[in-house]
Amino acid sequence: MSTPRAYWTGHIRLSLVSFPVRLFAATSPARTIQLHQYDKNTGQRIRYQKVSEKDEDPVESDDIVKGYEYEKGRYVAIEDEEIDKLKAESNHVIELTQFTDAADIDPIYYDRPYYIAPDEDGVQDAYVTIREALRKAKKVALGRIVIANKERIAAIKPCGDGLMLETLRYAQEVRDAKKFFDEVKDDAEIDDEQLELAQLLIEKKSKPFDPKAFHDTYQQGLMEIIKAKMAGKEPQAEEAPDDDGGNVIDIMDALRKSLEQSGGGSDSKAGKSGSRRSTKASGTKASSSKSSSSAKSAKSSAGSSKSASKSASKSSSSSGGSKSTAKAGAKKSGGRSKSSKAA
């Protein structure tokens, strides 16, 4: 396997310590399917040419120069050599001027990562010393680097057995987030149980990051379409899921269902937590309904007992039976009344 070409070569310098290094791109563009434009009538590719603005005639590369337009149609020409001399030292030297905690750098400022490799065998000692010093101090080294005629902030930190450099964006390159979050309230009240459900859902779906678990489904689908057409078949596109983004939903209900789908189960903490709010909200109404129902039942039973007592007494008198029958009926109805009160 051939060694990749170095993206940048130069020195890292810390005070009087300096050693040569090479930078290699830590990432590579994802391999994507290239779609070209072509003339459907002739099948010929469509090409783009550099043409002059006025007559649209093609311009040779040797006749194209860089310049700054200070007035409409008037330029100050800038030569590549002049740009190279502008930052001659930082073109080939990364001067470490500051050290900071990694947590102090907002991730939005990180741009591109590069692996730093020592350029000569004799500099291993200095290279490893800087690496271990940064690791023990838990710091990131900051400096400047010029890559592709553009000066960037360089952040250097340990990476496995070596060092990694990440270019950082300048403050003016990062948009102020506040204007995008104006409608988000700082003091918005959140239901405790609702928050607990969300936390349980996050906990349920939490696991170590594995980049291999994620796939470019767009590229895979595009290749399936291409293969189907090459085989003379009609591509079978999957139906897109329903978009309910515009519908207002009950967040509590949605969180509960989400937990169930992820294997939370109704007997889990989430199910119990989710039911509390419903129980509290309907508790007073349920209690009132139960009390009213009990009262009606007791009243009905009492009325039935009174009627039974009269009937028993009347029956005893008309048949000449003993008073014991009436007493038994009254005792029996009294038992019912007592039972209904207990209910």
Rank of each mutant, 00 (worst) to 15 (best):
P4K: 04
R5H: 02
P20D: 08
F24K: 02
R31I: 02
R31Q: 14
Q34Y: 11
H36P: 02
K40I: 04
N41R: 15
G43M: 07
Q44G: 12
Q44N: 14
R45P: 14
Y48W: 06
V51E: 01
K54L: 12
D55C: 07
E56P: 03
D57M: 15
P58A: 08
V59Y: 07
D62G: 02
D63F: 05
G67K: 05
E69G: 03
Y70N: 01
K72D: 07
G73Q: 09
Y75L: 01
I78H: 13
E79C: 04
D80Q: 12
E82D: 11
I83H: 05
L86P: 00
S90E: 06
N91R: 13
I94A: 09
E95M: 08
T100N: 06
D101L: 09
Y114H: 03
P118D: 06
A126C: 06
Y127R: 02
T129G: 04
R131W: 03
E132G: 00
K136P: 00
A141E: 08
R144E: 09
I145Q: 09
V146E: 01
I147Y: 03
A148R: 15
N149Y: 09
I153A: 02
A154G: 01
A155N: 00
C159Y: 14
E166I: 05
T167P: 05
Y170M: 06
Q172E: 14
A177H: 09
K178A: 10
F180P: 11
E183W: 10
D187C: 03
D191A: 11
Q194S: 14
L195S: 03
Q199T: 03
L201G: 03
K207I: 00
P208A: 10
A213Q: 06
G221N: 00
I226P: 03
M230G: 02
M230S: 13
A231T: 00
E234Y: 13
E234L: 14
E238C: 11
D243H: 07
D243C: 05
D244N: 15
R256I: 08
L259H: 04
L259G: 13
G263V: 01
G264R: 06
A270E: 02
G283N: 12
A286Y: 10
S289Y: 10
S289H: 08
S292T: 12
S294K: 10
K296W: 05
S297K: 15
G303T: 02
S311D: 07
A312K: 06
S313G: 13
K314W: 01
S317P: 00
G320S: 04
G321M: 06
K323H: 07
S324E: 06
R336W: 08
K338P: 03
S340I: 02
K341Y: 13
K341S: 15
